[in-house]
Design a protein around this nucleic acid. Structure first.
Length: 551
RNA sequence: GCGCCCGUAGCUCAGUUGGAUAGAGCGUUGGCCUCCGGAGCCAAAGGCCACAGGUUCGAAUCCUGUCGGGCGCGCCA
């Protein structure tokens, strides 16, 4: 925020003058209570001991010096235990309007001083069935996080890892195969853990219709055919669902290809070169315990096959090999126990801790009118993401997923998400946007034309407390994005938008924008609203939620 | 048993790199449509931030312990 930069620069000058170092714990931020001014600094409390001056007194000194140095400051005073609170002149805030006009879609975007090349992997659900709501949450968070990290200047690529080499997939082939045989009237025995979903039967029927001789194929070949067909069909369905949910993966990465390309061998070699592996009991082990894990882990089982962990290591090794320096994985929270061993692998590859992060996605409790809707892929009684999108819409579903901390459980009540109340803030935010559009439309009907760049002299008319509140909030947008990106926490964006919308609605209720008697003030207010609309749009864009002109 | 996460208003949740009098929505109560979109606004009531210690100028936030809840602890994926 420009205000923070201004204050920081001035304060640094003062400290240098006094021979004091800039304390690393210095915080410059808008205080909770707006009566304490626009910004608050805690430096005096941190420096009191070193300077040999009581904090209050030091804060008073800072206040005096700041007023001398910054013409944009209207007020600066010591307060509380030793805070230094400053208030900027209205003109300083009013300029935000023209700043936003100039930046447009770029408002809020920043150029990270240390941009990184990120590979963000998310969803990555086994293609054994359609995506359910839980996957939807991960999809929304992963996609929005991508937008957020790009907005602050990182280079982000997105990827979906297809577990097409494991036992689950063989089970899928078997499940379809058995259904095919069943449909053909053969006697079949279903194992305990096969996939029971209705979609399996449909796949089987499609296959049988296309090739009536299928059930007579040899068992192995038949299962392979079924596996192939089913996986591709399901994968296509997943891609379609994600597209409907406005979620895009730039690359779909197959686990199988890792083995075929020798990536597993390469990763094993890297671990072995660093002395982290051993043969024992006929298996190939990775000594993760020395790197913070609970116990060592097997990579190649004594029967010769690879563990899931083995190919996952190879996958992450491959990501680094492709030139990424920050790997972010979005996982279901039930995998949190897997983090230490993955982290151990990253360390064993010689990579720093900052080069790997996991964003955990907690469970989604799907409810209808407060009562749980049961979900189980195998039993086939789940609500699919596609069904949920169809029922509540992409915008409402995404906003709901993105409005809570991703690692705490979320109650998703289908009836509630359809409701147009504040239980469901997506409408509150979208309404704020549509409302501004309506006023601008009405202004046009009345023959008022708003130039693309507002004359700064007009902005002095934005002089009420509600004007100031909106301007300050709009000014804080960039910092909010940067902070959310740093914390990998998209929900800050939703909260910000809800707050900004609240200020807009208050403003609207309190101040008439189109004033027939006062054209200059009307123009100033219209310019303000248009600027706020831009902020709302940019914020909603980070969430991947639409900004409708009318509702 | 061990590990990770969590416990904030009646309900659902923000706030946790330590900051001033702990916030929002829903719900409850009471107001606001001659006027730009009432999917909105204004106001009131509602709290020992699970509990007990500790660290310091200062703790919902950091440390220790207790209680309560979720999840994870395979040569499964």
């Amino acid at each position: 925020m420009r205000a923070i930069d201004t204050l920081r620069t001035a304060l640094m000058g003062i400290l240098t003058e006094k021979g004091l170092a800039w304390p690393s714990k210095t915080v410059i931020e808008p205080p909770r209570d707006p009566r304490h001014g626009d910004l608050s600094v805690n430096a005096a409390m941190l420096l009191a001991k070193e300077a040999g001056v009581p904090p209050r007194e030091l804060a008073q000194l800072f206040a005096r010096k700041l007023l001398e140095r910054c013409p944009d400051l209207q007020k600066a005073e010591a307060a509380g235990p030793g805070f230094c609170n400053v208030t900027f002149s209205p003109g300083f805030w009013q300029r935000i309007v023209t700043d936003i006009e100039a930046a447009g879609e770029g408002w809020g975007r920043s150029a990270e001083q240390n941009p990184r090349r990120i590979l963000l992997e998310y969803v990555s659900a086994n293609p054994t069935g359609p995506l359910h709501v839980g996957h939807g949450r991960g999809a929304a968070v992963g996609d929005s996080l991508t937008r957020l990290l790009r907005a602050v200047g990182h280079e982000v690529h997105t990827e979906y890892y297809i577990n097409d080499a494991g036992r689950q997939m063989r089970l899928l082939g078997l499940s379809v195969w058995l259904r095919v045989r069943e449909l053909a009237g053969r006697d079949v025995v279903f194992p305990e853990d096969f996939y029971r979903g209705e979609y399996i039967v449909q796949l089987a029927r499609t296959m049988l219709d296309a090739d009536p001789n299928l059930p007579d194929m040899p068992e192995d070949q038949g299962q392979d055919r079924c596996y192939d067909f089913a996986m591709n069909a399901i994968l296509e369905g997943i891609k379609a669902d994600l597209a409907d949910f406005r979620v895009e993966h730039q690359n779909w990465f197959s686990e199988k290809t890792l083995v075929e390309d020798g990536a597993v061998d390469a990763a094993f070699a890297a671990l072995t070169a660093n002395g982290h592996t051993r043969e024992q009991d006929g298996a190939f082990w990775f000594a993760t315990q020395a790197l913070g894990d609970d116990k060592d882990r097997v990579l190649r089982k004594s029967d010769g096959s690879l563990t899931y962990f083995a190919s996952d290591i190879a996958y992450h090794h491959d990501k680094f090999r492709r030139g990424y320096d920050w790997l972010i994985d979005v996982w279901g929270a039930d995998h949190h126990g897997y983090i230490p061993r993955m982290r151990a692998a990253i360390t064993a590859m010689g990579k720093a801790g900052e080069s790997f992060d996991v964003v955990l996605i907690q469970l989604v409790n799907l409810l209808r009118n407060g009562k749980p809707v049961s979900m189980s892929t195998r039993a086939g009684t789940f609500e699919t993401l596609a069904d949920v999108i169809k029922e509540v819409g992409t915008d409402a579903a995404r906003f709901m997923f993105l409005s809570r901390k991703s690692d705490s459980p979320l109650d998703f009540d289908l009836e509630l998400v359809k409701q147009r109340s504040m239980d469901n803030p997506v409408y509150y935010v979208q309404y704020a946007h549509a409302r501004i559009c309506a006023v601008l439309r009405r202004a046009g009907e009345r023959g008022i034309t708003l130039p693309a760049a507002t004359d700064p002299r007009l902005l002095a008319a934005l002089d009420t407390p509600e004007d100031m509140a909106l301007l300050r909030k709009a000014a804080a947008f960039e910092d909010m994005l940067a902070q959310a990106a740093r914390a990998l926490s998209v929900h800050h964006v939703s909260h910000y938008l809800t707050e900004l919308s609240g200020l807009l609605h208050s403003y609207y209720a309190r101040h008439q924008v189109l004033l027939p008697e006062d054209e200059e003030r009307s123009l100033a207010r219209l310019a303000l609203l248009r600027a706020i609309r831009q902020v709302l749009r940019n914020g909603l864009d980070v969430l991947g939620v639409g900004a409708p002109d009318a509702m």
